[in-house]
């Protein structure tokens, strides 16, 4: 899995700290004290002092500079105190402040810097999301989705024309594979993971249908579902109605498997596992003509492979 943006220095800018008097808000000595705490890197003190400053100067709640400053206080807590931890609450707080600052910055005095900070946070969120997937950290899979959504929201603000398709494909594939692993670890009790897995692979293919991995995974997954429903799930004491019903489901699965396997076959016509899968699906569907056709292709590939060895 690719790690987008990794290696880019995320935080190379600081808040405006020259004393700035907004024309629209009143003089506020507490704000000056807040700036002082920020400049001396007493970020936690500064954070705790924000409420005091707002209590004394309530009009600052909509002051773009004050909000910009609060954003950078949290930004530095995230960076220097929380060590850029994914679980840092300062990151989300910082983003909220920067967004509010942008929304109130009619003169666009702080927007450029706010947007840079937001862009950096968007990068940190997608990196954290992809890291969860890379580590197959099952417990935090929902968090990965939350981070991905944060990334999209923030990136859309920082770069309104950003094309999400490439990174979304990576993310959806990672999510799909993780749900697949979770389903395969406990097939009987994890049907919901199977649905999620299929959903994510389909989302990925909707963005780019010409991908090998999700096509292959879905092809094999549907094939295995067809096999499992008969060999594993169909009880030998099941009545005739159930036998017919489960056969119907198996046929549906095999029929769904076929187009995915045929897509990857076109991409890798010499991959024996694909040819084997297609032959098996045709056999299961009792299309013997096609089964034999692919078995012959398989035979040719295997004999070619043994000659190459």
């Amino acid at each position: 899995m690719k790690f987008f943006f990794k290696g880019i220095s995320l935080f190379v800018f600081v808040a405006y700290t020259s004393i700035y008097f907004s024309q629209s808000t009143s003089y506020c000595p507490e704000q000056m004290l807040l700036i002082q705490k920020y400049k001396t890197k007493n970020y936690i003190d500064a954070l705790n002092y924000i409420d005091t400053a707002l209590a004394q100067c309530p009009d600052k709640t909509e002051d773009p500079y004050f909000l910009h400053l609060c954003g950078f206080i949290n930004y530095n807590i995230y960076k220097e105190i929380d060590g850029q931890s994914a679980s840092s609450k300062a990151r989300l707080r910082a983003c909220d402040y920067f967004i509010k600052s942008i929304n109130n910055d009619n003169k666009k005095q702080f927007t450029a810097l706010n947007l840079k900070a937001i862009n950096s946070f968007s990068i940190s969120y997608i990196n954290d999301a992809l890291m969860i997937l890379q580590k197959s950290d099952f417990k935090n899979q929902n968090t990965a989705l939350k981070y991905y959504n944060n990334f999209k929201k923030l990136k859309s603000i920082a770069e309104p024309d950003y094309d999400f398709s490439t990174i979304s494909v990576d993310f959806f594939n990672g999510m799909g594979r993780m749900y697949k692993m979770r389903y395969e670890n406990d097939k009987i009790n994890s049907k919901n993971f199977l649905d999620s897995c299929i959903n994510y692979f389909n989302k990925s293919l909707a963005l780019n249908s010409n991908q090998y991995t999700p096509n292959y995974d879905l092809g094999i997954l549907y094939h295995n579902l067809g096999v499992d429903i008969i060999l594993e799930e169909l009880d030998i004491d099941a009545d005739l109605e159930m036998v017919i019903l489960m056969q119907e489901q198996a046929v549906q699965y095999f029929s769904k498997s076929l187009p995915f396997l045929q897509t990857v076959y076109k991409m890798k016509p010499e991959e024996t596992s694909i040819v084997q899968g297609i032959a098996a699906v045709y056999y299961s569907l009792n299309d013997m003509e096609k089964h034999v056709e692919y078995m012959n292709i398989l035979k040719d590939l295997e004999s070619k492979g043994s000659k190459d060895d």
Binding site: H223, N224, V227, Q276, G277, A279, A280, V281, Y283, S284
Partner: peptide, 12 residues
């Protein structure tokens, strides 16, 4: 991987 049996033809 293919489930149930390594050889998908055998599974079929």
């Amino acid at each position: 991987t293919y489930s149930a049996q390594q050889d998908p033809s055998a599974a079929a």
